[in-house]
Structure formats: C-alpha cells, structure tokens
Computed example of a mutant assay.
Amino acid sequence: MEKELKKTPLYEACLKAGGKMVDFHGWLLPVQYESIIAEHKAVREDAGMFDVSHMGQVFFEGKDAYRFLQNAATNNYKLEPGRGAYAHILNENGGIIDDVISFCLSEEKFLVVVNSATREKDFEWFKKKSAGFDVKVTDASDSYAMLALQGPKALDYLEALDADIKLLKRFWIKEIDLFGAKAYVTRTGYTGEDGVEIMGPAEQINKLFAWALEHGFKPCGLGARDVLRLEAGYLLSGSDMDESKNPYEASCGWVVKLNKEEPFTAKEIMARVKAEGVKNKLIGFKLLGAGVAREGCGVYKDGVKIGSLTSATYSPLFKAIGCGYVPAEINDGDKVEIEIRGRMVPAQAVKMPFYKNKV
C-alpha cells in the first residue's frame, strides 16, 4: 500500500495560485506555477516566494542548550540572542546526516531548522545525543508553516509588512507579530538572492501568502528553486551530500571548526581528513556543447569515467550546469566530458558558485 503524500498548510493556497503539484520526499509541493524560467527571472530580478513548510523546526531549551549544540554540530556557535549559523551534523564516521541552520533565541533556547527528508532522523539523533545534557529537545515542525520570500526587491516589498525588516542582519532571527500571532523571521536564503523566511502558525502564514501575492511576490515552485540554489552553489541534502560524504569532500570544510573546545561528533576524524586531504571532492561543471545534463550522468576524463553528477539542470544564466564528485586533482578550468544518453558532451570544471550576488 502506497504511503499517502503529506500536504503543507499552504497546499490549497498553492493550488489556487496555479501550482502544479509533485511528490517531493513524501510531500505534495508545487514544481512550478507559470513556468520555471519565469519564476527564475522573478527571483533574480524582482521577488518570488516559495512554500517551504515541509522543512522542520526543532527547539532546544535548558541550561545546556548552547553547550549541547556546540557538541552536536560542526560550526562554532555564538551565544548571542538573534544570531544564527549554518552547520553540519555528522555521524560517528564523519558522514553528513544533514545541514542545518541554528538560531540563538536566548541563552537557554535555540531553534534549529532542518531538512524535510531527514527531519525524523535528525530529531532522533538529537534526542540520542542529548543524554547527559540538561536540554529539552522538541520537534515543533507540525505546528509551523513557512514561506521563503526571495529576490532583490523582496525586502522593499516587505517594508509594508515590517518597517524594520531591513535592519535584520544576514543569518539572524527576530520575533514579530504576524497578523495577531507570534512568528519568526530569518534572513538566510537558498537562492543566492536577498530575502527572508517567515515561519509561524498555519493561519498566519496563509494570510501572509495572500498578502505577498498582492504586494509584488510571484509564487515559485521547486523547479525554479532547484535552478536558483544550484547556480548559487547551495547543496541539496540527500543528493549532493549524505552520510557517505564528509564536509571536506562536499567542499564545505569551512563549516568545520576544529579549533573550538567542544568535542563534536567525529571531530578527530575531521582533523585527520583535513590533514591528509580527500581523494574525491564536489565540484561544478559547465557544459560546452549542446545538451542538458541530469543527476546521475557520468563525468569522463581522457575516456575514463571519473565520477557522476549529483545535481544538474538548465540555467537561464549559464545554460547546462551541474556538480558531482570527482578526483580531488581535478581543478577549475579542466576539460572533461559528460555522458548524456550515450553521447559525450564536452564540459569544463568550474569552481562553485556559478552565480554570486552581493547579499
């Protein structure tokens, strides 16, 4: 018997706005509304919004909340209310369980946003690791809906909702009153453009969706989101990184803070990996010939297969692009070939991100 697909609190609103729904890790989410190219253009030049209510919210409360997260994740968090940081949580071998963003709400309370595909696994891992710490771990995901509002004009439009929105710094969080209820605003993003995510009760986020439609935001789906995040060099959990890869292989060594005092999971292994180097690494590729590569396409050098693409798409800005794991000696600018349906297409290794905006 097939498992019933889950619907976000914004499902009906997305349908009404013209969303074409698909299965994404067990959730029914819009892949597109008008078109992927039109939605990509809206986010790069104006403002778009995405239903990201499938993502998870886990709260950590107690006098050991900060120390626990320092032990649980790779980055070095700051005990400063409002401040957030991106990090990886690792298994005992150094494999990436998930990439998360943690926010300090107070000295004894943190909010961690996790990916939908690993939400349950993350929560169980956090609970197991919390033994011996004075910290309460709560999965509040079912109580929240979440809307991402991104684009160069997003904050201009949002000033009508919150006059102080531009004062929120990158990777910080603040609490607001949203149509009569408490909500959180974060300024991170997954598109390479400026903007915010707003999470709160379903009723309020549905009102926000309707408000945003009337204030310049174009509804956007998973298709445009995948193109935007790959252009910006953001990794997709479960495809570009998983428990078989470590942060250094995923070209995310910067997120591993070996100099912090807390002995986070696999810290000694990460120190060894950094010292010895990696055999394979994630790198970007740009096709030089006709065709559009997809996930799983082989990467070849001098007729020998050296790896496969973990993500690939058509970019309106850069044509056919992708990324994948190949030997560490492959460098930016090296010529390779990518196999597309039995046809070898010339390509070039490119250091990610393909696109970088000043946000």
Results as ranks from 00 to 15, higher is better:
Met1Pro: 10
Lys3Tyr: 11
Glu4Lys: 15
Thr8Leu: 03
Leu10Glu: 06
Leu10Phe: 06
Gly19Pro: 05
Met21Thr: 04
Phe24Arg: 13
Leu29Gly: 02
Val31Gly: 02
Gln32His: 12
Glu34Ile: 12
Ala42Asp: 05
Asp51Lys: 05
Ser53Val: 07
Phe59Lys: 06
Lys63Arg: 15
Tyr66Cys: 01
Phe68Val: 03
Leu69Thr: 10
Gln70Gly: 00
Asn71Glu: 14
Asn71Trp: 14
Thr74Gln: 07
Asn75Cys: 02
Arg83Thr: 08
Gly84Tyr: 04
His88Lys: 01
Ile96Gln: 01
Ile96His: 03
Ser102Ile: 09
Glu107Gly: 07
Phe110Glu: 09
Leu111Ala: 06
Val114Ser: 13
Asn115His: 12
Asn115Ala: 10
Ser116Arg: 08
Trp125Ala: 13
Asp134Trp: 04
Val137Ser: 07
Asp139Trp: 01
Ala140Lys: 14
Ser141Cys: 08
Asp142Val: 09
Met146Thr: 08
Met146Ile: 08
Leu147Ala: 02
Leu149Gly: 04
Asp156Val: 04
Asp164Leu: 01
Ile165Phe: 05
Asp177Pro: 00
Phe179Gln: 11
Lys182Asp: 10
Ala183Asp: 07
Gly189Tyr: 01
Glu193Lys: 09
Val196Arg: 04
Glu197Val: 04
Ala202His: 15
Lys207Cys: 01
Lys207Tyr: 04
Leu208Gln: 03
Glu214Phe: 05
Phe217Met: 12
Ala224Asn: 04
Arg225Val: 00
Leu235Met: 11
Leu236Ile: 09
Ser239Arg: 15
Asp240Phe: 06
Met241Gln: 14
Ser244Leu: 00
Lys245Thr: 14
Glu249Tyr: 03
Gly253Tyr: 06
Val255Thr: 12
Val255Gly: 04
Leu258Ser: 02
Asn259Val: 02
Lys260Tyr: 07
Glu262Leu: 11
Phe264Leu: 13
Ala271Ser: 15
Ala271Met: 09
Val273Gln: 09
Val273Leu: 10
Val278Cys: 00
Leu282Asp: 00
Ile283His: 08
Phe285Gly: 02
Phe285Pro: 03
Leu287Ala: 07
Gly289Gln: 02
Gly289Trp: 00
Gly291Trp: 13
Ala293Pro: 12
Arg294Ile: 14
Glu295Lys: 14
Gly296Asn: 13
Gly298Ser: 15
Val299Thr: 03
Asp302Ala: 11
Ile306Val: 15
Ser308Tyr: 09
Ser308Glu: 15
Ala312Glu: 06
Tyr314Lys: 09
Ser315Glu: 08
Cys323Lys: 14
Tyr325Leu: 07
Tyr325Ala: 06
Ala328Cys: 11
Asp332Pro: 04
Glu337Arg: 10
Arg341Lys: 15
Val345Thr: 11
Gln348Pro: 06
Ala349Met: 04
Lys351Tyr: 01
Tyr355Cys: 07
Tyr355Asn: 13
Lys356Gly: 13
